[in-house]
Design a protein around this nucleic acid. Structure first.
Lengths: 241, 241
DNA sequence: CGTGACGTTGACTGTAGTCAAAGAAGGTGG
DNA sequence: CCACCTTCTTTGACTACAGTCAACGTCACG
């Protein structure tokens, strides 16, 4: 198991070689999960945290009618529920979007890291705060942007995350989500997602088809979506252009 | 300076007496801030974190037209920007709503705590994760609830937070926010906030006037707003009726 | 080749935004 | 102490963005 992707561009320089190997030793065996499967349900007590090696996962809350509101989409290199370590009980569900490969780190191991490696502990803390920063941007997206800009903003965020782990060339990337998934992310109906995707295509900004997204005009898309990647705390050089 | 409110009901039992006194020693002198003032601006580098002793504060993001989206409302006993410790640079603004009293903890002191008191470090980490849990609920509120339920849900959250620090008797509490502030919180216009407040009043659920909110029917309000305080991770006995 | 999930489109509806104006409240200075 | 000014609240009329409902198309898979 390797945490390379996680560390890529995320303050790796602040860690010693021993820190990195301590983290890698902490992770258990990599195991597969099927697509569209729940890993954790709201209210579950958790005793290990999940590191996503391959595939796409998401976290969501249900409303009374059982409709989902996605609160995060995870890509390889993300810790999907590291916050479960201090919280113990999760306030939301965790599920796969596609078939995945994950590694789980027992919380007992994290206790050892807290005792022995304050620098590494701070990096782990930092990574949960990145999630919080993304949550804030999702609040902004839902509270201040119209449907078109919400879609654009979501695409910008996921592209930036994918680029940081080498899964986007800056123009085209795989996004294995249905229009229904995107609707649950952006707080609009899937019918309206469809209309807005057409709109983005007709404006020559973004094209999406069969789980592949193509950016046709990134600067214009950033402008339309009021997207500024600062909140992702990626290194400046990664985000240049 | 005292961290009593912060520790109240928030896993105080997990800390030793030395932990508590270490935390209290770390805080600097209490100082006042005027109302409606910015403490931190997006992009600022921070070297201390702010503990709110008295008054109401908020955090927000601006859109291109300069309109605000609130992402958090803070009450006495909250660390408003503890996440600035690992993040270093803040991705949003921090401001007062009312005149406040704050204490600031230099990040150097937090480094010492990380080295010497893993248990306390974990509690601090936990408290930033509470913010993240509230962020998630705000995403849910904006993405899945209509205007009426958004208002109700916000009132429920703030009341639960205030009750945990003894500032609500479960029926009436001070909420020094204008309808404009509430609009910026709930992602609707202030005109519509006004209409929905009237609606809540006419349904005999909530009454708000001159910064004082009264719950007329809490169970019905919880139902309407799909509010479940689990995400606040308050002790069960505090939340019992 | 049939079936079910997903995508696409059109017509109609409704919730919330916009614009405008007037009323209340609170603070300041003459 | 009152007049004035600003900010906040309230209401009405009109608009528009997004939801709902329904039907049909497309694609992958068994």
């Amino acid at each position: 198991m390797t945490f390379e992707k996680f560390l890529l561009g995320r303050r790796r320089d602040q860690l010693s070689a021993e820190d990195i190997s301590a983290l890698e030793r902490a992770g258990g065996a990599v195991r597969p999960l099927p697509g569209r499967a729940n890993l954790i349900t709201q209210g579950d007590l958790v005793s290990a945290s999940t590191y996503l090696v391959e595939g796409f996962m998401c976290r969501y809350l249900d409303d009374r009618k059982g409709e989902r509101q996605l609160i995060a989409v995870h890509v390889p290199g993300d810790f999907v529920d590291l916050h479960g370590y201090p919280l113990k009980r999760l306030d939301h569900d965790v599920a796969t979007l596609t078939p995945c490969k994950i590694a789980q780190v027992p919380h007992g191991r994290l206790d050892e890291i807290m005792r022995e490696r304050p620098g590494l502990s701070k990096l782990l803390w930092f990574s949960t705060l990145l999630d919080a920063a993304m949550h804030r941007e999702w609040i902004f997206r839902l509270g201040r942007l119209d449907a078109l800009a919400r879609l654009g903003h979501f695409f910008c965020e996921i592209e930036a995350k994918l680029r940081a782990v080498g899964m986007s060339d800056g123009r085209t990337f795989a996004l294995p989500m249905t229009q229904i998934d995107i609707a649950e992310t952006c707080g609009i109906t899937s019918v309206h997602v469809n209309r807005m995707l057409r709109d983005l295509r007709e404006r020559s900004l973004v094209h999406m088809r069969a789980g592949v997204v193509t950016f046709l005009d990134r600067p214009a898309l950033y402008r339309l979506s009021e997207f500024d990647p600062g909140y992702l705390y990626l290194d400046a050089d990664i985000m240049e252009h």
